[in-house]
Protein backbone atom coordinates (compact mmCIF):
# COMPACT_ATOMS: atom_id res chain seq x y z
CA UNK A 1 0.00 0.00 0.00
CA UNK A 2 1.71 3.18 -1.16
CA UNK A 3 -1.13 5.62 -0.65
CA UNK A 4 -3.08 5.62 2.62
CA UNK A 5 -6.26 6.34 0.69
CA UNK A 6 -6.08 2.80 -0.69
CA UNK A 7 -6.99 1.61 2.80
CA UNK A 8 -10.50 2.88 2.27
CA UNK A 9 -10.70 0.76 -0.89
CA UNK A 10 -10.05 -2.51 0.98
CA UNK A 11 -13.12 -4.51 1.95
CA UNK A 12 -13.95 -8.04 3.09
CA UNK A 13 -15.43 -10.73 0.86
CA UNK A 14 -18.22 -12.96 2.28
CA UNK A 15 -15.63 -15.55 3.39
CA UNK A 16 -13.74 -12.93 5.38
CA UNK A 17 -10.86 -12.48 2.92
CA UNK A 18 -9.57 -8.93 2.47
CA UNK A 19 -10.10 -7.81 -1.12
CA UNK A 20 -9.37 -4.67 -3.08
CA UNK A 21 -12.73 -3.13 -3.87
CA UNK A 22 -13.12 -2.23 -7.57
CA UNK A 23 -13.16 1.40 -8.66
CA UNK A 24 -16.30 2.69 -10.28
CA UNK A 25 -17.39 3.06 -13.03
CA UNK A 26 -16.28 -0.33 -14.37
CA UNK A 27 -16.05 0.79 -17.98
CA UNK A 28 -14.99 -2.67 -19.22
CA UNK A 29 -18.16 -4.37 -18.03
CA UNK A 30 -20.51 -1.39 -17.89
CA UNK A 31 -23.17 -1.30 -20.59
CA UNK A 32 -23.31 2.22 -22.09
CA UNK A 33 -26.68 3.85 -21.50
CA UNK A 34 -28.22 7.17 -22.45
CA UNK A 35 -27.59 8.43 -18.89
CA UNK A 36 -23.85 7.69 -19.04
CA UNK A 37 -23.51 9.02 -22.59
CA UNK A 38 -25.25 12.30 -21.71
CA UNK A 39 -23.18 12.64 -18.56
CA UNK A 40 -19.80 12.25 -20.29
CA UNK A 41 -20.85 14.52 -23.18
CA UNK A 42 -21.78 17.17 -20.59
CA UNK A 43 -18.17 17.07 -19.42
CA UNK A 44 -16.70 16.96 -22.95
CA UNK A 45 -18.82 19.92 -24.11
CA UNK A 46 -17.86 21.76 -20.91
CA UNK A 47 -14.18 21.39 -21.83
CA UNK A 48 -14.93 22.44 -25.44
CA UNK A 49 -16.84 25.51 -24.21
CA UNK A 50 -13.80 26.51 -22.13
CA UNK A 51 -11.96 26.83 -25.44
CA UNK A 52 -14.98 28.73 -26.77
CA UNK A 53 -14.65 31.16 -23.84
CA UNK A 54 -11.09 31.85 -25.02
CA UNK A 55 -12.55 32.74 -28.42
CA UNK A 56 -14.95 35.15 -26.68
CA UNK A 57 -11.97 36.88 -25.05
CA UNK A 58 -10.13 36.97 -28.40
CA UNK A 59 -13.20 38.64 -29.91
CA UNK A 60 -13.24 41.24 -27.08
CA UNK A 61 -9.49 41.91 -27.52
CA UNK A 62 -9.93 42.32 -31.29
CA UNK A 63 -12.90 44.65 -30.82
CA UNK A 64 -10.98 46.70 -28.24
CA UNK A 65 -7.81 46.81 -30.38
CA UNK A 66 -9.04 48.41 -33.58
CA UNK A 67 -10.58 47.95 -37.02
CA UNK A 68 -7.71 45.91 -38.49
CA UNK A 69 -7.76 43.31 -35.71
CA UNK A 70 -11.56 43.16 -35.66
CA UNK A 71 -11.88 42.77 -39.45
CA UNK A 72 -9.14 40.12 -39.35
CA UNK A 73 -11.00 38.04 -36.76
CA UNK A 74 -14.36 38.57 -38.50
CA UNK A 75 -12.82 37.42 -41.79
CA UNK A 76 -11.43 34.27 -40.14
CA UNK A 77 -14.77 33.47 -38.49
CA UNK A 78 -16.48 33.79 -41.89
CA UNK A 79 -14.08 31.34 -43.54
CA UNK A 80 -15.17 27.67 -43.77
CA UNK A 81 -12.90 26.78 -40.84
CA UNK A 82 -14.26 29.66 -38.76
CA UNK A 83 -17.85 28.63 -39.50
CA UNK A 84 -16.97 25.04 -38.54
CA UNK A 85 -15.64 26.28 -35.17
CA UNK A 86 -18.73 28.45 -34.63
CA UNK A 87 -21.04 25.56 -35.54
CA UNK A 88 -19.24 23.24 -33.09
CA UNK A 89 -19.48 25.99 -30.47
CA UNK A 90 -23.24 26.32 -31.02
CA UNK A 91 -23.81 22.55 -30.67
CA UNK A 92 -21.65 22.37 -27.51
CA UNK A 93 -23.29 25.49 -26.06
CA UNK A 94 -26.89 24.31 -26.53
CA UNK A 95 -26.05 20.79 -25.38
CA UNK A 96 -24.35 21.99 -22.18
CA UNK A 97 -27.19 24.50 -21.68
CA UNK A 98 -29.94 21.84 -21.93
CA UNK A 99 -28.07 19.13 -20.01
CA UNK A 100 -27.23 21.80 -17.40
CA UNK A 101 -30.92 22.67 -17.00
CA UNK A 102 -31.57 18.93 -16.46
CA UNK A 103 -28.90 18.93 -13.74
CA UNK A 104 -30.49 21.97 -12.06
CA UNK A 105 -33.87 20.19 -12.10
CA UNK A 106 -32.24 17.21 -10.36
CA UNK A 107 -30.66 19.57 -7.82
CA UNK A 108 -34.17 20.90 -7.09
CA UNK A 109 -35.31 17.30 -6.58
CA UNK A 110 -37.21 16.67 -9.82
CA UNK A 111 -36.93 13.92 -12.43
CA UNK A 112 -34.97 11.23 -10.63
CA UNK A 113 -37.11 8.21 -11.61
CA UNK A 114 -35.75 6.18 -14.53
CA UNK A 115 -38.56 6.72 -17.08
CA UNK A 116 -38.38 10.51 -16.53
CA UNK A 117 -34.56 10.42 -16.67
CA UNK A 118 -34.58 8.58 -20.00
CA UNK A 119 -37.23 10.93 -21.35
CA UNK A 120 -35.38 14.11 -20.30
CA UNK A 121 -32.15 12.59 -21.67
CA UNK A 122 -33.73 12.22 -25.11
CA UNK A 123 -35.27 15.68 -24.71
CA UNK A 124 -31.78 17.15 -24.17
CA UNK A 125 -30.61 15.63 -27.49
CA UNK A 126 -33.73 16.80 -29.35
CA UNK A 127 -33.60 20.31 -27.87
CA UNK A 128 -29.89 20.61 -28.76
CA UNK A 129 -30.67 19.75 -32.39
CA UNK A 130 -33.65 22.12 -32.58
CA UNK A 131 -31.86 25.06 -30.91
CA UNK A 132 -28.75 24.57 -33.08
CA UNK A 133 -30.82 24.54 -36.29
CA UNK A 134 -32.84 27.59 -35.15
CA UNK A 135 -29.65 29.48 -34.28
CA UNK A 136 -28.13 28.80 -37.70
CA UNK A 137 -31.35 29.74 -39.49
CA UNK A 138 -31.09 33.05 -37.60
CA UNK A 139 -27.40 33.32 -38.62
CA UNK A 140 -28.29 32.81 -42.30
CA UNK A 141 -31.06 35.42 -42.08
CA UNK A 142 -28.78 37.95 -40.35
CA UNK A 143 -25.63 37.45 -42.50
Amino acid sequence: MTDIREASMVGRATDGRLVQRPLSPHLQIYKPQISTAISIFHRITGIALSVGALLLVCWLIAAASGDAAYDGLSGFLRSWFGVLILFGWTVALWYHFCAGLRHLAWDAGYGFDLPTMHLTGKAVLAATAVLTVLTWIAVIIVW
Binding site: D67, F97, L101, L104, T135, V142
Partner: peptide, 26 residues
Protein backbone atom coordinates in the same frame (compact mmCIF):
# COMPACT_ATOMS: atom_id res chain seq x y z
CA UNK B 1 -24.96 27.94 -13.88
CA UNK B 2 -28.25 29.58 -12.90
CA UNK B 3 -26.76 32.99 -13.74
CA UNK B 4 -25.48 31.64 -17.06
CA UNK B 5 -28.96 30.61 -18.24
CA UNK B 6 -30.13 34.18 -18.99
CA UNK B 7 -26.58 35.38 -19.77
CA UNK B 8 -26.14 32.65 -22.42
CA UNK B 9 -29.45 33.49 -24.08
CA UNK B 10 -28.50 37.17 -24.08
CA UNK B 11 -25.03 36.33 -25.45
CA UNK B 12 -26.44 34.32 -28.39
CA UNK B 13 -28.92 37.12 -29.15
CA UNK B 14 -26.19 39.79 -28.88
CA UNK B 15 -23.79 37.80 -31.09
CA UNK B 16 -26.45 37.45 -33.80
CA UNK B 17 -27.21 41.16 -33.56
CA UNK B 18 -23.53 42.20 -33.68
CA UNK B 19 -22.34 39.75 -36.36
CA UNK B 20 -23.26 42.04 -39.26
CA UNK B 21 -22.03 45.29 -37.68
CA UNK B 22 -18.64 47.00 -38.17
CA UNK B 23 -16.34 47.52 -35.17
CA UNK B 24 -17.43 51.11 -34.53
CA UNK B 25 -21.05 50.01 -34.18
CA UNK B 26 -20.00 47.17 -31.87
Amino acid sequence: SVALVPLTLWFVYATLHLSRLPRAAV
